[in-house]
């Protein structure tokens, strides 16, 4: 019943992890410059480098689990999102609380023909990492339709 994300999302996550590594490397470079110019301690660079390896590595290792546990489900009454491998999280919101639905795609997602869906209530935002454009449009229409019906009844 609950839907899984498209398998290509894993590649998007891989790229995300690599970009993460780049970020840490940039920080390490900056710290190295600080070390040579203002004699900042060298171990700061070491820590940044270690994180540049560890952080993406943890991400990469977890991707299969993350993928395996990610589920979304849209019933006539509510939207359910389940995510997380080690720290599992389930978000639930009734359709009647939905204020708007936004579809978005950055360059990486667009390259894999995916779209991120974000569902907003009056105070919270709930995101589905990536779905195919067809599913995204269908989701949007379904949610908006259900939201409208629910509001009419109220």
């Amino acid at each position: 019943m609950a839907e899984q994300l498209p398998a290509t999302i894993k590649r998007v996550w891989v790229i995300g992890a690599l970009l993460n590594a780049l970020g840490w490397l940039a920080l390490a470079a900056a710290l190295w410059v600080a070390n040579s110019w203002w004699a900042w301690p060298l171990w700061l660079v070491v820590i940044a480098l270690a994180l540049a390896v560890l952080h993406p590595l943890v991400h990469l290792v977890l991707i299969p689990y993350r993928y395996a546990f990610w589920r979304y489900q849209i019933t006539p009454d509510a939207v359910y999102l389940k995510k997380g491998a080690i720290f599992r999280k389930e978000e639930a919101l009734p359709i009647t609380r939905i204020q708007n639905v936004t579809l978005e795609a950055g360059p990486v997602l667009a390259h894999y023909h995916l779209q991120a869906v974000s569902i907003e209530t009056a105070s919270t935002k709930h995101e589905i990492d990536g779905v195919t454009p067809a599913v995204a449009a269908q989701l949007r229409d379904q949610i908006m339709q259900l939201a409208m019906e629910a509001r009419d009844e109220a």
């Binding site: 720290f87 599992r88 999280k89």
Partner: peptide, 14 residues
Amino acid sequence: AIQSVTLSQSIWMR
């Protein structure tokens, strides 16, 4: 007034 509800559980809590 409740906009959404989130449940979370780590694998050690399960």
